[in-house]
Amino acid sequence: MEPWEMREWFADFLEALNRHDVERVREFLHPSVRRAHLPAGADAWIADYANLLHGFPDWQWKRIQLLVEDDRLAVHLRGGGGHTGPYAFVAPTRTRVSIASFAMYRVECGLIVEATGTDDAAQIRSAIA
């Protein structure tokens, strides 16, 4: 993919995340996607995202910065939502959470094959604890 195509590809991925369309999100993931310090595979990624949406049903991501180099994306996002459902064994607190997220993705044939970045779950847990 050309850099402009990667930018459009990421915009589509972010739109699927923000619509909470987990099946569409899955279409962007290689079945055995590797994630730093997290279980590998698209199923694990989707399960983690579904857990986030269970605790924060209005969660949205906003792109702050996106850099493209060859088959890699560097992304700075801001994510947030209201804690109205259970998340990480914490009952709903009604706390509004806003986090900064930094991630690197390697993309092959339109699928994320590797991902690494900040531990968003840890940031979220600390905001509601």
Rank of each mutant, 00 (worst) to 15 (best):
P3L: 08
W4M: 07
W4H: 09
M6A: 02
R7Y: 03
R7C: 04
E8W: 06
E8M: 12
F10R: 00
F10E: 00
F10T: 00
D12K: 11
D12H: 12
F13P: 01
F13G: 01
E15T: 14
A16T: 03
N18F: 10
N18W: 11
N18E: 07
R19L: 07
R19T: 05
H20R: 13
R26K: 12
R26C: 09
L29W: 00
H30W: 03
P31W: 04
S32M: 06
P39F: 01
A40E: 15
G41I: 01
A42K: 01
A42N: 05
A42D: 02
A47H: 14
A47S: 15
A50C: 10
N51L: 13
L53P: 03
L53E: 07
L53Y: 14
H54R: 14
G55N: 01
G55D: 00
F56C: 11
P57R: 10
P57A: 15
D58A: 09
D58M: 07
D58G: 11
W59E: 08
Q60M: 08
W61V: 07
K62L: 08
K62R: 15
I64S: 12
V68Y: 06
E69Q: 14
D71F: 06
R72E: 13
L73G: 06
A74V: 14
V75K: 02
V75S: 08
H76E: 14
H76Q: 09
H76A: 14
L77Y: 01
R78G: 04
R78W: 05
G79C: 12
G79S: 10
G81N: 12
G82H: 13
H83A: 09
T84P: 04
G85C: 09
P86E: 09
P92E: 11
T93F: 04
R96D: 11
S101G: 07
S101P: 03
S101L: 15
A103D: 13
Y105V: 02
V107N: 05
V107R: 00
E108D: 12
E108A: 15
C109S: 14
C109V: 10
L111E: 13
E114D: 03
T116C: 11
T116Q: 08
T118Q: 04
T118P: 03
D119W: 01
A121C: 05
I124A: 01
I124R: 00
R125M: 15
R125H: 04
